[in-house]
Write a protein that binds this DNA or RNA. Structure first.
Lengths: 356, 356
DNA sequence: CTGAAAGCGCTTACAG
DNA sequence: CTGAAAGCGCTTACAG
């Protein structure tokens, strides 16, 4: 990736080396200041006189000067790269998170480097360590479920790498968190079903070692309990957040003598599994069975009837997590509230009051 | 991202600066060679004696030495970053492509930087140019539909940036292509429908300015023509590759006096739109209507009945495209065949012979 | 096959 | 508020 061949708008009388991008030396020479002063301006140091700053900044714009991140990185001993570390969520979730992160990084000089990994494999923490250290990353975003792994966070603390954790509830140091409040989203689903008149309700939740699953279950059962409905153990089935596991769980629930009139699923994939089983068994949604999902993925509106689901604003979540990493304002003022993003129920056509 | 705090396995008698990663100078000193020799070994130069090479390589492994990509990048005037530039395909496609690219980059020292963009916005080519030049990217992968934009490829040629283009058919310089042969995939769908006995067939295709759409249409209609079936214009509807546009196209097709007995959709999203309309209209799939999609996305198996679809191995495609970028073997030997990946039909339950 | 010098484009001390 | 020197960890010419 050699120098630009598109010539810079060359100012009258300004001599720039041809076929090469301007460097800090060119700017310094052209502006008649030392390179250190230019460096101060690049790094927004306050120790530069206002008029000097303005003159140099105008010059930089004019010649299209952008400091070389490689050279800055070498001198700083830190790159201008943000890593996104994730395990295995759905494609739409990853992509939205990336879009959000990129929203925050746009025009900041930082770029996003992706690092999927397998949190079940023993060496994955070392893999992240190598990734961070070899690339001298500026920071990393930890997406669920790796964000929930305290051992990973500990490793990053140990090597002094900044990070943000996106999780259902606050974990560890609050200034590094973006909380998605899954408990509240699930509670809203519960309230909605109760308001519709459902009493015999079931939930298909995610793996017990996912904090999101635990939170969604607690939020759902807690809100129902608040309204006088206790969910028996048999009405809560732990599945694997996958379509297939949703099918299996739904088969269990829907083949029972007495079927629940509503099922809340901890994600849309599993809700699609419920749809599949209901369709095969001739159970009509929403007439005979109300269903709610979680994620509000594209799948929710592809299903028929369109699925009522808890939306989480993943793009916004990613934007906030990335923004926290590149904010100069590093000092955690202590009093700042923890960053968070709120879920909310998107009502479509998959629920109605129970028959009878 | 400071130096490792996990101490290197320190060899007896080897003195490494504490709390810092080893540098090329440490290796040179410890091995008793010049740093230039170490550099030659890092860069796989043949101009090093075999025993010297082995001795130094053993030392590098021992102390866990990895060359600093920032320093190498500065000296080379090129980073160790591969960019992935994409416009707006489905989430699963992007994610699979990323996984594939990362498969190829694993342990290569290269990392993947993502760059979504909007090919309809006028400044997008300049955006890619800045991305490439500021980061001094080693190369970029061009994913459909940006891969089809000759102006983008021209810009990259002009600034001397290496790239690979993933597209339905060969475009421009063949050594930079990964061809997905969409024509063949669509032809396979056509043959299958003809074999089942369908004669009144329709197609919902993508936007005419997508080469993939053109190729899939050509492949489908061509294969049918070969088997004696001419598709009238009215049986080919151009839609937008989206669910909603698939719904609209299906409404047109299925409200006609005489409905087709089979519909081939240029992607799964639009096939889901056909399902939606058929379900609402009480048209049973596959009994009264056969449907085929393209992509074999997760959606294909979430639908009921499970959708027969043309699979493209996107992960493999990404792997090949990234591998081509980092192969030292730069000289296009000319005679090498163009890189390609073949689609194939995955038969599920959405097709059967036409009734009556 | 090997090496000493200079340089890539920045920043960090240290002075003034 | 500003600057000259040294250095970040590599590689590119140029010699031998």
């Amino acid at each position: 990736m050699p120098a630009s061949s598109k010539p810079k708008k060359s100012t009258a009388g300004i001599a720039l080396p041809h076929g090469k991008n301007a460097t800090i030396n060119d700017i310094a020479r052209l502006a008649g200041v030392s390179k250190k002063t230019v460096s101060r301006i690049i790094n927004h140091s306050p120790l530069v006189r206002q008029d000097t700053r303005e003159r140099v900044e105008a010059l930089m714009r004019e010649v299209g000067y952008v400091p070389d991140p490689l050279a800055r990185g070498l001198a700083f001993r830190r790159s201008f790269l943000i890593g996104m570390v994730y395990d295995n969520p759905t494609a739409q979730f990853i992509v939205n998170m990336q879009y959000g992160a990129l929203d925050a990084l746009r025009d900041s000089g930082f770029e996003l480097v992706v690092h999927p990994c397998d949190s079940r494999s023993p060496g994955y923490i070392d893999g992240v360590r190598r990734f961070v250290q070899q690339q001298k990353l500026h920071g990393v975003m930890l997406v669920p479920r790796v964000s929930e792994d305290q051992a990973l966070a500990d490793m990053l603390d140990e090597i002094g790498c900044r990070y943000t954790r996106i999780a259902a509830l606050p974990l560890g140091e609050k200034s590094k968190m973006v909380v998605t409040h899954d408990r509240d989203g699930a509670a809203e689903a519960a309230d909605y079903l109760q308001t519709l008149g459902h009493r015999d309700i079931a939930m298909i939740t995610g793996p017990g070692h996912y904090r999101s699953a635990v939170e969604r279950t607690a939020g759902f059962t807690g809100a129902l309990a608040n309204r006088g409905i206790e969910l028996p153990k048999s009405r809560i089935i732990e599945a694997g957040y996958t379509f297939e596991s949703g099918v299996a769980a739904a088969e269990k629930l829907l083949s029972a003598k007495k079927r629940p009139t509503a099922i809340f699923c901890a994600n849309d994939e599993m809700a699609a599994g419920v749809y599949r089983v209901a369709l095969r068994a001739g159970i009509r949604i929403p007439q005979q069975l109300s269903v709610i999902g979680y994620d509000d993925s594209p799948l929710a509106s592809r299903l028929w009837p369109p699925l009522t689901s808890v939306r989480r604003d993943t793009r916004d979540t990613g934007r906030i997590a990335a923004a926290m990493l590149i904010q100069p304002d590093e000092g955690n003022h202590g009093t700042r509230t923890v960053a968070s993003v709120r879920p909310h129920l998107v009502v479509r056509d998959s629920c109605q009051p129970p028959e009878d």
